[in-house]
């Protein structure tokens, strides 16, 4: 089993997803099945093959350095669960 209890915990922390205790065992099984299944790729010979970063093979569009102001502070904050004095509000962050 490539994904065990501690791996799931580590990955869940990285992804910031709380896993309910009851779901944990089933999730470990599912993840292992999926990882076991994609492991098939290891059989494919990819020697000297460049990774394909994008199917898009035109050059990247660039824009000129012209500043715009399309959205007011009110719009930016409009959907926020909590805001104050123009700021987004989060629980205290300790540095």
């Amino acid at each position: 089993m490539s994904i065990d209890n501690s791996t799931v915990k580590k990955v869940a922390l990285l992804a910031r997803i709380e896993i309910q205790k009851n779901d944990e065992a089933a999730l470990i099984d599912e993840l292992n099945n999926i990882i076991g299944w994609v492991d098939e790729l290891k059989k494919v010979n990819t020697e000297d093959i460049e990774p394909m970063l994008s199917v898009f093979n035109e050059t990247m569009n660039m824009r000129k350095d012209n500043p715009q102001s399309n959205y007011t502070n009110e719009l930016i904050l409009k959907n926020s669960p909590e805001n104050n004095a123009g700021f987004f509000v989060v629980p205290k962050v300790v540095e």
């Binding site: 994904i3 990955v11 910031r16 997803i17 599912e30 993840l31 989060v90």
Partner: peptide
């Protein structure tokens, strides 16, 4: 806040794929 928001806000299949993707 992060973990509970995302744990409760996303459905099972999304969480499954986010776990795979992170892994």
């Amino acid at each position: 806040l992060y973990q509970k928001t995302r744990g409760l806000g996303f459905g099972k299949e999304v969480k499954r794929r986010l776990m795979i993707g992170t892994y």
